[in-house]
């Protein structure tokens, strides 16, 4: 397997008006790894992922997937599965119909829709309107959409949000299975305890990069808690919670 980075951020800065969401972000993700992008709410995680996917233009720097910008990467939609908190399903659809829309757009057969519905455990509710789905079911549908093209790389923004304990365990096992198959996963989260059980590498972002490397090195092979190391690197929170 090639050890060329699957994902590379080079000095990425993104400003929205006078607000700097991400500043001078540089890190790489190696193939076959599960990488946790950690930070508080408003730390710039989603912005960084949107820059990576070409949804947002960086103010400076660039981000590549498999050596190319997303829009220049051949067959990008089939190679990269995406689930983001802010990407909802097609309005007015059922779970099955929503997946069929994306399957057709990707040139995939309907059998693939049934396969991912089964994979995420939504087969029984596939013909219900998505509007009536619980948060956890919506999260599973988003994951099903990401898995639809059987991608080499998964980019998941807060994938644990809304999942119940069974769902969290299922997701952890799924990600482990995907990584064992040589696929790469970049997931953003602010749930440190969950991430600690799932990822190989960690990127800590608090507008600027605070750490990038193996989880084991950060936690001294488990001698330190990720939470403690996170607060050391990301800085203390404002009273009452995050500094959004």
């Amino acid at each position: 397997m090639s050890e060329a980075p699957v994902i590379e951020f080079h000095c990425v800065t993104k400003k929205f008006g006078g607000v700097t969401a991400v500043e001078d972000l540089t890190f790489a993700v190696r193939p076959g790894r599960i990488v946790g992008l950690l930070g508080r709410n408003g730390a710039g995680k989603s912005t960084a992922l949107r820059v990576l996917l070409g949804l947002v233009q960086p103010t400076a720097g660039h981000a590549n997937l498999f050596g190319h910008a997303y829009q220049d990467l051949p067959d990008a939609p089939r190679r990269i599965g995406v689930s983001m908190d802010t990407i909802g399903p097609t309005p007015g659809t059922t779970g099955r119909r929503d997946l069929r829309i994306w399957a057709r757009s990707l040139g995939l057969p309907d059998s693939r829709v049934e396969a991912v519905l089964d994979q995420v455990g939504l087969t029984d509710s596939a013909d219900r309107k998505v509007k009536g789905y619980s948060t956890g079911m919506r999260q599973r549908l988003a994951l099903a959409t990401a898995l639809l093209p059987d991608p080499e790389l998964l980019v998941l923004d807060e994938p644990v949000n809304g999942l119940d304990p069974d769902g969290i365990r299922w997701l952890r096992e799924l990600l482990r299975t995907l990584a064992a198959e040589g696929r790469t996963v970049l997931l953003s989260s602010h749930l440190l305890a969950e991430v600690e059980q799932t990822v190989d590498d960690v990127v800590i972002l608090q507008r600027t990069l605070r750490y990038s490397g193996p989880l084991a090195r950060l936690t001294t092979d488990g001698a330190d808690r990720l939470e403690d190391r996170f607060f050391e690197l990301a800085g203390a929170s404002a009273p009452g919670g995050s500094r959004d």
């Binding site: 990269i80 990407i87 909802g88 309005p91």
Partner: peptide, 10 residues
């Protein structure tokens, strides 16, 4: 709905 982002990605 935010699905515009997925449409652009796909």
């Amino acid at each position: 709905s935010g699905s515009i982002s997925r449409s652009v990605l796909v």
